[in-house]
Computed example of a mutant assay.
Amino acid sequence: MPRQLAHLRLVAVNIDGVLLNDSFSPVMRRLVEGYGATYDARFEREMLSQPQRVAAQRAADRLGGDAGQLIKEYFALREEYIREHPVHLLDGAAELLATLREFDVRTVCYGGLERAHFDRHLGEFADYFDAPGYVCTNDFRPGIREISELFGLRHDQALFIDDVARVAGTARELGTPFIGHPGESSHGYQRQLMEEAGVRHMVGTLRAIDAPLLRTVDAEAAAGTVWD
């Protein structure tokens, strides 16, 4: 029998940076520094978890050039990067999905790339997710409002697990439960930015998202104290 939670009805898990290794922010750094610019926390805050067209235009405003061309350059650099650092399942990801399946909540994966990315790298775990399994959020990032509404839930009934502080900021605005999984500080500034955003629950390993932590977040959501 599934374990019961008092309040949460959905757990939404980001794909790149949570279940899979981050193959985006390191590439962003390469692109920016290739233009002779400084990659800093402000730049990273403006770029991550934005629709591609928005991120590209902001990058063009800072770096110069055409937004469309920057998108092409970015994805060409990403192809080079993943040849050096192949996309792979992060340590503890399978265990996290198994833990979530023990509870009476629905689980969905989301991210900025098309579904083919999910099918290719997480297809073997498809049974761990509820329909539609994966939601592409490129047109409405970060997607908290839209994913919650897709499942017919209030914003406080869905827990989001993400590696980007912009998502945390939106979660705070909406009163949505959030667990942060920021990447290594050598790659970017997300831990710093999450701390500034007031994220209460941050983990360095997916294994830390266990039953006790989920029950803690559930109790905070039920009490309306997620961001207090």
Rank of each mutant, 00 (worst) to 15 (best):
L63T: 04
A67M: 06
Y81K: 03
T99A: 02
I82T: 15
H88C: 03
E79A: 11
Y74L: 04
E79V: 04
A94E: 15
Y74H: 08
D104H: 06
G64H: 12
L100I: 13
D61N: 14
V87G: 02
E84T: 07
Y81F: 14
A94I: 10
D61P: 08
G65N: 08
L89V: 14
D104T: 13
R78F: 08
Q69V: 08
I71Y: 06
E84D: 14
F103P: 05
L63G: 11
L77C: 03
Y81M: 02
L77I: 05
Q69K: 08
V87S: 05
E95A: 02
E79Q: 14
E79S: 03
E79R: 08
E80M: 00
H88Y: 07
Y74T: 03
L70M: 05
L97C: 04
H85A: 00
G65H: 04
R101K: 07
L70F: 02
E73S: 02
L77Q: 09
Y74C: 01
A94W: 13
V105C: 10
L96N: 06
G65M: 09
E102C: 06
F103L: 07
E102R: 15
D61I: 00
T99L: 08
A93D: 11
L100Q: 13
E102S: 14
R78I: 04
T99M: 13
L96Y: 13
A94Q: 12
R78S: 04
R62T: 01
L96F: 15
H88G: 02
V105I: 13
V105F: 13
G68Q: 12
K72E: 11
L96R: 10
F103Q: 03
L96Q: 10
E95N: 06
K72W: 12
Y81I: 03
L90A: 03
E102T: 15
P86L: 04
G92Q: 11
G64P: 14
E84C: 01
L100M: 13
L77S: 11
E73G: 02
L63C: 01
V87R: 05
E73M: 01
L90S: 07
G65Q: 07
E95Q: 09
I71H: 08
G65F: 09
A76V: 11
L70K: 00
A67W: 06
E84W: 03
E102K: 10
I82G: 03
Y81N: 01
D61L: 09
R62A: 11
K72T: 04
G92I: 03
L90K: 15
L96W: 15
I82Y: 10
A76N: 13
H88I: 02
L97A: 06
D66A: 06
V87D: 01
V87K: 12
Y74Q: 07
G92R: 13
L70T: 05
R83Y: 04
I71K: 11
H88V: 02
K72I: 05
Y81E: 06
G68M: 07
G65W: 02
T99Y: 12
G92H: 14
D104L: 04
E95C: 00
R62S: 07
D91H: 13
F75C: 05
D66Q: 11
H85N: 14
V87L: 03
V105R: 14
G68D: 12
E79Y: 05
E80G: 00
K72F: 02
Y74S: 03
A93V: 07
Q69A: 11
E79L: 10
L90H: 12
R78L: 06
V105H: 04
A94L: 10
P86N: 08
A93W: 11
D104V: 10
L100F: 13
E79P: 00
P86F: 04
P86A: 01
I82W: 09
